[in-house]
Each structure stands twice: as C-alpha cells, then as structure tokens.
C-alpha cells in the first residue's frame, strides 16, 4: 500500500519540513488533505504554488460547522506535474470570520471569495471589491449559513398557493371530471 503512495509521502515530508504545524494526511492515491491555521495562510499557499507545483486553484468552498461555531474554508489545489489534488482546510471563528484574500496569487480567486462572502458572510481582507455577486439587495442573514431559517423566510416573504400541501383541489377536479374515487391515504404527520 505504502509503496504506491511514494509521491504523496514525499510531498507530505516536504510540507512538514517547511511548515511544522501543518497536519498533512494522505487521503488516498493522488489526494492529500492539509489542516492549517488561518493566520499565515497566504504564505503557506504561495509556498505550495511556487515550490511544490500546485499552480492551479480549482475552487474555494466553505462549510458551516454550526456546532463548533466555526467556518471551514477548503482551498482545492491541483498540481499538473505530480497529478495530486491538495485540499487545504482552515477553520475560522464563526463570529469573527476574517481571512486574507488570495486574489494576488490567483485573480480568479476573487469570484469564489465574493460568493463565499455573500453566501456565508466571511470577510476577505485585501479583496478589491466584495460587492454582491448573485443576490441583489440582500439585507437578511447570509442565506447559506445553517442558522438561516429558509422556510421561515419563505413563509414570511412569499405566499404559497392554497392546496399545494396535499393537492386535494387538483384531485377533486380530476375525480369530478372522470368520475374516479379518491383513495384514502394515511397522513404522514
């Protein structure tokens, strides 16, 4: 098993030589995962980009760990030389979510950061323009946060059409038209 993961183990050694606090895990072939602290993230990522060959930022995603009161940002990097996918995971405090922007390393990181800012409310320092990307005039809680109650928001903002819950009106219309009997179904609740 280990003999097949030579490349990955070597990268793990190299990363640990440079940054002792990085917790590198070899997930499987061609995939490593790194836990790191948020403070010196740009330095770490630029080290990966310049010296380890991870030149491609695939995407940035965000996970809301409501129970730990933390956001987890995941930076997906890809190395064309080694064919290895690295996931850099960092945890941010949920109440004061702030991190340095990566837009100086990759210009296209701007878009992902704008989206994460809009959907989760993470603040990116040094970003050229953290304006609205998809939502317009959103004043509520950022909608992808887990403490944002979608159904309450929908019930407050929109009006549902009557009869949507069990479609009884449609069934009655159809049964009246074609003379069918409506079967009695058990209610779920």
């Amino acid at each position: 098993m280990d003999s097949k993961l030579i490349k990955e183990q070597e990268i793990k050694r190299n990363i640990n030589n440079a940054f002792r606090s990085a917790e590198v895990t070899v997930v499987r072939r061609r995939r490593i995962s790194v836990r790191f602290r948020a403070g010196i993230l740009p330095a770490f990522i630029s080290y990966l980009k310049e010296y380890m060959g991870f030149v491609h930022l695939v995407m940035i995603s965000c996970v809301d760990w409501l129970e730990d009161n933390q956001f987890e940002l995941v930076y997906h990097l890809w190395s064309y030389e080694e064919h290895i996918h690295a996931m850099i995971k960092i945890r941010l405090d949920r109440d004061n979510a702030q991190i340095k922007s990566l837009s100086s390393l990759w210009p296209h990181a701007e878009t992902y950061e704008r989206e994460i800012h809009e959907m989760f409310g993470v603040d990116f320092e040094g970003h050229p323009g953290l304006t609205d990307l998809i939502l317009e005039d959103w004043s509520d809680l950022p909608p992808m946060r887990r403490d944002f109650d979608t159904r309450a928001f929908v019930a407050e903002t929109f009006e549902w059409r009557k009869g949507r819950e069990d479609a009884q009106d449609v069934r009655q219309t159809i049964s009246a038209r074609y003379g069918e009997t409506i079967p009695e179904f058990k209610k779920d609740k």
Binding site: L135, P143, F148, T150, R151, F153, V154, T157, F158, E159, W160, R161, R164
Partner: peptide
C-alpha cells in the same frame, strides 16, 4: 410558476407568478 414547484422552500425564487 404555478406554486413554486421543486423550489417551494427556496429563499430566492418566487412561488406564484400571478402575484
């Protein structure tokens, strides 16, 4: 457009077009 369809609990799509 009639009743929201599969987006019935989405925060960002309207539910009844005729409103």
């Amino acid at each position: 457009t009639i009743n929201g369809g599969m987006y019935w609990d989405s925060y960002n799509t309207i539910k009844r077009l005729d409103d």
